[in-house]
Amino acid sequence: MPQLAMVTGAAQGIGRAIVERLGADGFDILALDADEVQLSQSAHDWRTAGLTVRTAAVDCRDRAAVIKALDGIEAVNVLVNNAGVSGILDPIGQVDRAGCDRVMSINLLATIRVAQEAVRRMPDGGSIINIASRGYLGGAGAAHYVASKAAVVSLTRAMAIELRWRGVRVNAVAPGMVDTRMIDGFGDMLGALKRMEPTGAPANPTEIAAIVSVLAGQDASFVNGQILMADGGKSLGLPPL
């Protein structure tokens, strides 16, 4: 019987690539996304490709909606907490309370709530992968986003410590720049930022999905509580090629 992988922020970008990779790995998929239209379009493509996918248009900040999406599901074997936003990228003093609250609510509180509801249904030996960001190390002009992703990193460590007694592994992937719609928010800076990448270009979402695939499976049974940087070496201070 196929195992179930639950993926949030599944409709596009990294999340969509994860759905397709885990589906190809043999998982049945529960795909959650707040964008109902995009989710419907992606679901059509997934089913055409032969994947077994159940979808739910859910804002993961809403615990009741998450619980409803899980209705009838007995076991969540893998959870990928991918849903996230960058918010408006401005210095600290120029980001208002609502902007900070929104980014923290989506990137952190929703991650905790989804993890809680998935863990209630997770058999021993499950795997949780939180999608953080290389940005958690710090950056000017994005403090609320940086803080939210650093929180996800610390959450990952704490969950790994707590859940290891059940054999549930919790790891995080911290991508650098990835070629998704999120980086469109960089506007005019995008070209320059791409050139600053050590490889000269952003990663393809499928590269992040491949890492998630490994962490989800038993080949990574000895990997727990880790933050896997996937940034082309930028965190090492590597200059562009």
């Binding site: 600290i92 923290m104 952190l108 905790i112 958690y136 710090g138 403090a143 940086v146 803080a147 939210s148 992703k149 650093a150 929180a151 996800v152 990193v153 610390s154 959450l155 990952t156 460590r157 704490a158 969950m159 790994a160 410590i161 707590e162 509580g225």
Partner: peptide, 19 residues
């Protein structure tokens, strides 16, 4: 850095440090 029985507190501690 992570701790047992304090997932939410650890998360916000990480947020403060990153901030």
């Amino acid at each position: 850095l992570g701790a047992w029985g304090a997932a939410d507190a650890c998360a916000f501690s990480g947020a403060y440090v990153a901030l």
